[in-house]
Design a protein around this nucleic acid. Sequence first.
DNA 1: CCTTGCGTTGAGAGCGCTCTCACCGGTGTG
DNA 2: CACACCGGTGAGAGCGCTCTCAACGCAAGG
Lengths: 324, 324
Amino acid sequence: MAPTLEDVARAAGVSRSTASRVLGGYGPASPDTRERVRAAATRLGYAPDPAARALVTGKGYRLVVAVVGLDPAVLDDPYVDRVVRATAEVGARYGIGASLQWLPMDSAPTVLHRLAGDRSVCGAVLVNTTEAVLRALPRSLIGRVVSIGIGWPGVPSFDVDNGGATSAMIQHLYASGRRRIAMVTGPAWMPCTQRPIDAYQAAMVAAGLPVRLVPGDFTAAGGRAAMLDVLDRWPDTDAVFATSDAMALGAIAVLRSRGIEVPGDIAVAGFDDIPFASYGVPALTTATHPVERIAAAAATAVLEQTWMPPVTAYPSELVYRESA
Amino acid sequence: MAPTLEDVARAAGVSRSTASRVLGGYGPASPDTRERVRAAATRLGYAPDPAARALVTGKGYRLVVAVVGLDPAVLDDPYVDRVVRATAEVGARYGIGASLQWLPMDSAPTVLHRLAGDRSVCGAVLVNTTEAVLRALPRSLIGRVVSIGIGWPGVPSFDVDNGGATSAMIQHLYASGRRRIAMVTGPAWMPCTQRPIDAYQAAMVAAGLPVRLVPGDFTAAGGRAAMLDVLDRWPDTDAVFATSDAMALGAIAVLRSRGIEVPGDIAVAGFDDIPFASYGVPALTTATHPVERIAAAAATAVLEQTWMPPVTAYPSELVYRESA
DNA sequence: CCTTGCGTTGAGAGCGCTCTCACCGGTGTG
DNA sequence: CACACCGGTGAGAGCGCTCTCAACGCAAGG
């Protein structure tokens, strides 16, 4: 159906080699030949098959953003879209396309194995990957794979400094007089959950304050449930730090429905600085998440193939609004 | 680097043909041979190269979700994620992977042309495509491409019945006593903008009510600006229908900051029923957008290659909450 | 004894492409 | 006149895979 290089060559009255040389723009060719080949290609609507090309050159032509085990409900904001977009932008500068690949938790190793054999992919950016997945990472993928989240020997990690952000937020809450600060975390199975918990615990223990941890799931509904739980277990809580804005927004909804003042009675802070953070009442105090910067760095790392430090943490900044 | 079928065959002491037959599971082979080949494949960590396979079979192995010209800021909700996810799920049932491809407005024809030549792709689902893009659609893509949004000869269209949803919403607003109903639309360049406008105008004219149209951009910030505009031009407006929840939420933020009661003074309705719609105060009245159903149908259509009606509209349902 | 049929196997072509290499005719040098 | 050289060109190998086809050994049937 689609015309091949052979078709173009025939139409231009030259050999396949010459056509390839002209279209690929690498070898010598007379102006006349050049012209004829190009004209034929346009006339036939020829587009080279990158898959066939990859087969012979041994170089892939697409970068895969592999998202591990994320139920879309887990994310009430377009996090993955942002990662793919940033990756695509970087890839475009290298003539490389970006593809999204969802890896259901249970079949992640299988899919990754298939990916490893695919000569059309030149590398991958793992998102939200777990230790189990990294452990099973195909050997042939090492060196052309990076991770947004936790790292692994041979797999450099890029992530927001959510530990630092947590410390800063707790500090802010403390400075504004809060002493009974609860934290709504991500789900335990997600690797990005641990560091904020550690930072929170360290800060609370250092200040001699009680540790109040409740697991969430990064959704507004989850934040709602978690807030209910906090209220139930520790009624005297005066501040809540949720590790995602969606959860914080859910928490605020609960508080408002109970007639509890925010931030008067309970301060609420989030994380991510999603668009809706500033549109609620009260506007959400939160910490930025430089997704694009992180994804761009990750993509660049696999495309450039240059040495990368095992872990790169990107600073998050506090955004002071009304809720805390 | 990565082992090839040849390597496996050699390790198992058989020919490449036999190895292919065993691993592909199509031809006869003695139990002993079968065993040896499989063992060798596992031991070497072999994964077949789908690109090479596609080259000979002529069948692609991935379905591309091609999103035309959408700035991520345009969407404050994970619409694209949802489409990709649904597509991936359908694809998985056919052993076909899904890839996301962003098409910047200006380079859409070029990228589509490249896509057409790529033997690794078996088809595409166009999202938010425009007439200009469809006009330039490569011939070899016709028959294996569908559109979520507007259609084209040979390109069946799947979309939510946003015209019907608009009529229903206006009717609801009218029934609850509203008479000066303004509408915040999508950006003019997006093809999904027109039908709701037509439906709104028809309803208003039929009821002898004034038409009050303001363009938005599907973001919360855009909704904010549009609401300001409405207030400025038609201070007596008593209802606003925004064609996305994000815009409706932005509109509500403006009204609240002005001390205007919602829905007391002005009713606000949205479209999409995103997660945050129910978390604001007041909870947003809106219309559902069955993205997954639509995407699944679109993906199935290209994978099944069966005849499809030129246009399939999926019903939207009104969700009555507090804001209207 | 030869034929037929069957289960099993490997040789080989070829998918669309890149790229090395050899070739060809024309020009410049010794 | 022989030689090297050079821009321009095509033949052909081969990337990893699938799949057709022929060949092989062996049992059953005539």
